[in-house]
């Protein structure tokens, strides 16, 4: 824990005076914050406030109107930086089988065959799709497709993992399982995670930090540290207290 604290001082993502407009619609309004290296940041905010827009700006899918987002001190470049982005919707390739989809990012990066097979097998198992490895996306349900995207992102073992409401479609049991899996992966690899969610309990369960956003035009309402030790117990009084605090913040929307 001590050592981790020291390492964490490094800033992974630096957002300064980020403003994003779509035409006349002001979405992100002069936002500034840092994400430390190795942090697990959960972002909660009202629907349509610009959470997806933020991730898209970070990854250069959108151009920002003004301000900047720096990754390790320079603008992000998905080709060089090891980013994985789990989109809000389905983004599996319909012409690839489940297994080939999970291996896609590894293929792109020319990971050696044996290592690729190991990683693919491992993450297929983790998301519970080993049995369906030869299926095509058309043959799967929405939650299974989402698991394919999750496995595909995890398998690349990224330095920065962006997750846009990834577990919204899953049933509770699977959600718990994949939440724990995310924490395990995060603890094991020291990767930096930005996790967007609507689910306050999920944010408190996962986050090292929790960032609450306001309605449009969006600013950061509050960022709080989550000191609860892991593994967290969602029934513990401290947990419930923190959850209520975040809920209160959100009530003021």
């Amino acid at each position: 824990m001590e050592i981790r604290e020291k390492e964490n001082r490094q800033v992974k993502v630096k957002v300064s005076h980020l403003t994003k407009k779509f035409g006349d619609l002001l979405v992100l309004n002069d936002i500034s914050f840092d994400v430390e290296k190795g942090d697990l940041l959960c972002v909660v905010g009202p629907t349509g406030c610009g959470k997806t827009t933020f991730l898209n700006s970070l990854t250069k899918i959108y151009d920002v109107t003004s301000g900047e987002i720096l990754l390790d001190g320079h603008p992000a470049d998905p080709k060089k930086d090891h980013i994985a982005y789990i989109f809000q919707g389905n983004s599996t390739m319909p012409w690839l089988t489940v297994e080939q989809n999970v291996a896609f990012g590894l293929d792109i990066r020319h990971v050696p065959k044996r290592e690729k097979q190991e990683l693919t097998d491992r993450y297929l198992e983790i998301v519970g799709l080993t049995k369906y490895r030869r299926y095509y996306p058309k043959q799967l349900s929405a939650s299974m497709l989402q698991r394919v995207s999750i496995a595909r992102a995890f398998a690349t073992e990224p330095e920065l993992l962006l997750m846009d409401e990834p577990y919204g479609q899953l049933d509770i049991e699977l959600r718990f399982k994949l939440e724990d899996e995310l924490v395990r992966l995060w603890e094991m690899t020291g990767t930096t995670v930005i996790f967007i969610t609507h689910n306050i309990e999920e944010a408190v369960y996962l986050g090292e930090h929790i960032m609450v956003l306001t309605n449009k035009p969006t600013t950061v309402k509050e960022t709080m540290r989550n000191p609860l030790p892991r593994p967290r117990d969602i029934a513990a009084p401290e947990f419930v207290r923190l959850r209520e605090r975040v809920t209160d913040l959100i009530r003021w929307w």
Binding site: P78, K79, I108, T156
Partner: peptide
């Protein structure tokens, strides 16, 4: 969406 997803996973133009 496919192009975007592939780009995010590091794909270059040829890929």
């Amino acid at each position: 969406d496919y192009l975007r997803a592939a780009r995010m996973l590091g794909a270059g133009k040829r890929q």
